[in-house]
Design a protein around this nucleic acid. Structure first.
Lengths: 340, 340
DNA sequence: TTGAAAGCGCTAACAA
DNA sequence: TTGTTAGCGCTTTCAA
């Protein structure tokens, strides 16, 4: 774990002919310690190369100053901005992070929760795997009174706050945008409807059609496997439809971009024949051709809000009224859907 | 940190009328414990909802079973495959991970190293920020005898193994490929030359030109800020050149894709007028149009090898002969550079 | 303003 | 095969 002999507070105490308790207080800037003593302690600690032993401290304090973060995938622009936001707030408040990915699998998620628990995280920030159903693998976390907050992909749970966008509204306005562009046969490339975000977007799609007086046609809703997406097949499915659709609303930019690229390879004109809307404002949405219309929502802010909410709860700053915080989203119109 | 009263080995011991030491041994499957006792211990532990207190264990064992990983950015396909590889091997061997990003800044990297040290990681896996020069902020890690291994973006350091690809060769063959495609005026969009990977790729580019009998022209080598890339400006710089180049070798796919998209927007034909080669085989390299020729190297494997090497060292399985492991790379030819 | 002392939960040397 | 015991390094109560 480290070199033969680490410096402890006892070494400092001996050096200064004071007690270890005083050294401990001095290092933690306890107000009862004389300023002069405190400074001497700090200086000696620095000189001797002292490093606190967090384990001893944690063991004693019954607190780890660590926040666990469980996310479906590291591998996206959105996720990495969320984490940057969490990290920023956490570091400001003296918390460390343990991050792990569920890779969209409940099984892995379950084991992640266990690991987090064993690491005695003070609190947990979770965005669910897309095939997670139910809440049972979090029950014991709540029983142990470990604060738990969901973000983005959430689940209704007693006593848990959540940070989301209004996915229904986002799906609604994405679809409405396509309708405004004179699309009448709109394919929705959906995600697992067990997942709150995909369910919301799908419902929004449905409602927008209905409000426009169009029938919902389940043949137009596709469910590719998000864990192992094969945009080639999805594109193929679309091309094989009796009547080609004229609009495409995908739950992610990566899906949208990949499918769009396949469609164009097959000679389909975007947006003239098929207008395309993605989701997330991923980096690639600006790079593909045509640039993707997409729904933007601020990952960094979502991360910051989630972390701040958790830390407030950890500090008991307020009665833990669990509440649902909704972050703003925005449709960004680009060439992939503009037909005028 | 958890509910009022956690179950400890003493509770189990009392329940079974045996000693805490026996419980500890039983839980750790110590061979000296009778099978029957061991099973009884495990079962009681499960029944009572026992969870090990890692801090007490770490404190006692002077070992954390944790590996620290410092990387420039979470936000790329390559990085996330590397981490998946590290995670796989680490979990198999019972190690946990602490991950943090330097965001391409030495300052943040330095503080990450400190945090890792304070968390008493058993070993450290590092890919350097692009502006890192020198090695001083790792000195104390080595002094404390914490095994340190670099991967991808490495630095010459005493007693440290490293896992890389041959960036010189990769840069060489990317450039050679462009020369084969009849490019004679090849722009290199480089990275900070302090960084091993970018330096290697740049040298390879240089050497390939020279071997082909072309002069190296520093006006053709651009250095965009990787932390805040503005491909618009880089593209603009290229378009403003007296003679337009006919080839483009970028140190990353994201750069290549973004610049290519700008160039095409300005009416440049790719690959006919300018052939483009990227690096990393990022997800987007297959999605952009035309698909990007790129250099592939296996992130997952790099991660696995790095983790395996570190764990071997931690287990002292072999004399720590520091060595340089080189992973294979491969040029993937796609439409963005094929002019025939 | 400081010190003495107990104990957080676990592991391992030594003893039986 | 199991138990006794000490101690990892720190914080905090109580006392001075």
């Amino acid at each position: 774990m480290s070199s033969p002999k680490d410096i402890t507070i006892y070494d400092i105490a001996k050096e200064l002919h004071i007690s270890a308790a005083t050294v401990s207080r001095g290092l933690n800037d306890h107000p009862a310690i004389k300023k002069q003593t405190r400074e001497k302690i700090h200086e000696t600690a620095r000189r001797m190369g002292y490093q606190q032993n967090i384990f001893a401290s944690n063991l004693r304090k019954q607190k780890t100053n660590t926040i666990g973060v469980i996310i479906p995938h590291l591998n996206s622009y959105f996720t990495s901005t969320v984490i940057a936001g969490i990290e920023k707030v956490a570091n400001q408040s003296g918390y460390n992070l343990i991050i792990s990915q569920s890779l969209e699998s409940v099984r892995k998620e379950r084991s992640n929760v266990d690991t987090m628990f064993n690491s005695r995280v003070d609190g947990l920030l979770v965005s669910l795997a897309s095939d997670t159903e139910g809440f049972d693998h979090f029950e014991f976390i709540l029983q142990k009174k470990i604060p738990l907050i969901f973000f983005d992909r959430v689940v209704e749970a007693p006593n848990c706050s959540s940070i989301t966008i209004n996915n229904f509204q986002a799906g609604y306005s994405a679809t409405q945008h396509l309708l405004d562009q004179r699309c009448r046969r709109i394919v929705h490339v959906a995600g697992n409807l067990r997942s709150s975000v995909y369910d919301g977007r799908h419902s929004g799609y449905k409602q927008a059609l209905q409000d426009f007086g169009l029938d919902y046609d389940s043949a137009l809703v596709l469910f590719p496997d998000l864990r192992d997406p094969d945009p080639g097949r999805t594109a193929h499915d679309i091309l094989a439809m009796d009547t080609l659709p004229d609009g495409l609303f995908c739950v992610s930019d990566t899906q949208a971009a990949a499918i769009m690229s396949e469609l164009r390879r097959a000679g389909v004109k975007v947006p003239q024949q098929i207008a395309v809307v993605g989701f997330n404002n991923d980096l690639l949405s600006r790079v593909v051709e045509p640039a993707l219309t997409t729904v933007y929502y601020p990952g960094q802010e979502m991360g910051e809000v989630a972390a701040r909410t958790l830390i407030r709860k950890l500090n008991q700053e307020e009665e833990h009224q669990p509440n649902n915080i909704v972050i703003e989203h925005r449709l960004i119109e680009r060439e992939s859907s503009l037909r005028n």
